[in-house]
Amino acid sequence: MSNLDALSERIDALEMRLAYQDVTIETLNQTITAQWLEIDKLTRQLAELKERVRETESHTAGPSNEPPPHY
């Protein structure tokens, strides 16, 4: 095998690896984007739930550690 054939094979191997890496990078990018969207959604839901808890606590009368009336 001549040097030209060996070089051609190496270039082909590098091109295949590059193509595989491009697909892998795109897949990882899509996964990360989906995860960030989910994290953003969950962060907004958490903020909404915190606000609901604050509103509920502000509308309750008396201390929360008060014993029940039958004591």
Rank of each mutant, 00 (worst) to 15 (best):
P69Y: 02
A47W: 00
E51P: 00
R54Q: 11
L42N: 07
K41M: 08
S64Q: 12
Q45N: 13
S58R: 11
E38Y: 07
Q30I: 04
T43K: 07
T31L: 12
A47Q: 13
T33I: 09
P69M: 02
P63M: 04
Q35A: 13
T43Q: 08
P67N: 09
Q30S: 07
R52W: 00
H59C: 04
W36Q: 14
Q30N: 11
P67L: 11
L49P: 01
P69N: 04
L46M: 09
L37C: 07
I32P: 01
E38P: 00
R44D: 03
L37A: 15
T60W: 09
P63I: 04
P69T: 01
H59M: 13
L46I: 13
Q30H: 06
E55F: 00
Q30M: 08
E48P: 00
R54P: 01
R52D: 09
T43A: 11
I32T: 08
R44C: 01
H59A: 14
P68I: 03
A34S: 14
E51S: 12
L37E: 15
I32H: 08
P63D: 14
I39W: 04
P68S: 09
A34I: 03
Q45C: 05
T56P: 01
R52K: 12
L37Y: 09
T56S: 10
H59G: 10
Q35M: 11
N65Y: 10
K41S: 14
A61V: 15
L46W: 03
P63A: 13
L49G: 02
T43S: 10
P69R: 05
A61E: 15
W36S: 04
A34W: 00
Q35I: 11
L42R: 14
L37S: 14
L37I: 13
E57L: 15
K50E: 15
S58P: 01
D40H: 11
W36M: 13
Q45H: 09
T43P: 01
P63Q: 09
E55C: 00
E38D: 14
S64I: 12
A47I: 08
E38N: 13
V53M: 06
A61I: 15
D40R: 11
L46F: 06
S64Y: 05
E57W: 03
T56K: 02
A61T: 14
Q30W: 00
L42G: 01
E38A: 15
E51K: 13
L37R: 15
R52I: 06
L42I: 02
I32K: 09
Q30T: 04
G62D: 02
T31F: 04
A61H: 09
T33Q: 14
T31V: 06
N65S: 14
L49S: 09
T43Y: 03
E48A: 15
W36F: 11
H59N: 13
N65C: 08
A34L: 10
E38G: 00
I32A: 12
T43D: 03
Q35F: 07
T60P: 01
A61S: 12
A47L: 03
R54D: 13
E51V: 02
T56W: 05
G62M: 07
T43F: 01
E51L: 11
L37F: 09
S64W: 06
W36P: 01
I32R: 12
R44M: 05
P67R: 06
R54N: 05
Q30C: 01
N65L: 12
W36V: 13
D40L: 03
I32D: 05
L46T: 12
Q45E: 15
D40S: 15
G62L: 04
E55Y: 00
